[in-house]
């Protein structure tokens, strides 16, 4: 579905105008982004708003550059990524194992099915004070909460993916003499992989959201902690440079995941699109 606004052309348009319009549509995607920053800068420089609420764009990017050079950014981003990925990987390992077991063993399904159906939609961050109570205010409780928050989306998708495996594939493997164990590794897991990766792609942004929240609440090294400290010291340039840094980190994580999906599913029909 695209616009069919182009009316039938009666006269040939001027070639110069065509080239100009082509050039315009080439740079058009940059316009909203540049425009956003420009609007921001104009508003903040105009003095209509308190500079505390709206620091100037160059000041924010100077701060980002400074922290990039003095290593502050790498230190904080490293701590944040370590927690997010550690929690996410623990969740992935557990959720894929349990998800596959659920699809194949009835009693496991009976036990975990209601837990997943309640756990999937619930706001997992609500358990943050519980994990703080149990594991203290350091990495152990942060990582546990991140794992807890990521677990359900991956498990739900693993179950759906495993149950949705075309039975003819399994039958083919059986009649080609494969053992049940081999079928699990060479048929069920690869066939469920697209949906397992979908689970990863739902869980990973959640893990990032929760990581930032735990860091804001418990402090320590990390992008969230640095941001909340900036806020406490009324350092609004620090707050906004924190958003830029967190946004960049989130961008790297999400695009790495997309790249991984394309690599792993190069055999899949979706790769052709």
């Amino acid at each position: 579905m695209t616009s069919d606004g182009a009316a039938p052309r009666v006269a040939l348009p001027d070639p110069g105008a065509v080239a100009l319009s082509a050039l315009f549509w080439k740079v058009a995607p940059a316009i909203p982004i540049v425009g956003l920053f420009a609007l921001w800068q104009i508003l903040s420089a105009s003095g209509a708003f308190n500079p505390y609420l709206m620091p100037e764009v160059p000041a924010v990017f100077r701060r980002v550059a400074l922290e990039l050079v003095n290593g502050e950014f790498l230190l904080n981003a490293g701590a944040t990524l370590y927690r997010a990925l550690a929690g996410f990987l623990i969740a992935a390992a557990l959720a894929v194992t349990i998800g596959i077991a659920m699809a194949r063993i009835r009693i496991v399904h009976w036990f975990f099915d209601p837990i997943l159906s309640v756990g999937f939609p619930m706001p997992k961050v609500a358990f943050l004070p519980v994990f703080m109570l149990w594991f203290g205010a350091y990495d152990a409780s942060k990582i546990t909460l991140i794992a807890f928050a990521s677990f359900f989306a991956i498990a739900v998708n693993t179950v759906a993916g495993t149950q949705g495996v075309d039975r003819h594939l399994v039958w083919s493997a059986r009649s080609l003499g494969a053992s049940e164990r081999k079928i699990l590794w060479t048929v069920i897991l690869p066939a469920a992989l697209p949906q397992i990766l979908t689970g990863f792609q739902i869980a990973l942004p959640l893990a990032m959201i929760v990581t930032i929240v735990t860091e804001m609440l418990m402090g320590g090294v990390g992008l969230g902690g640095a941001m909340i400290r900036a806020q406490r010291f009324a350092d609004s340039i620090g707050v906004f440079s924190g958003i830029v840094q967190i946004g960049f980190t989130g961008f790297v994580v999400i695009f790495t995941m997309r790249w991984l999906r394309r690599r792993l599913l190069s055999w899949h029909e979706e790769a052709k699109r």
Binding site: D166, H168, L169, A173, S175, G177, W267, E269
Partner: peptide
């Protein structure tokens, strides 16, 4: 009693392993 390599099967929708 179960499937075995003595009986080869060809399905309508091929059932090839798409990742191989």
């Amino acid at each position: 009693t179960g499937p075995g390599p003595d009986r080869g099967v060809v399905f309508q929708h091929f059932a090839l392993f798409p990742w191989k």
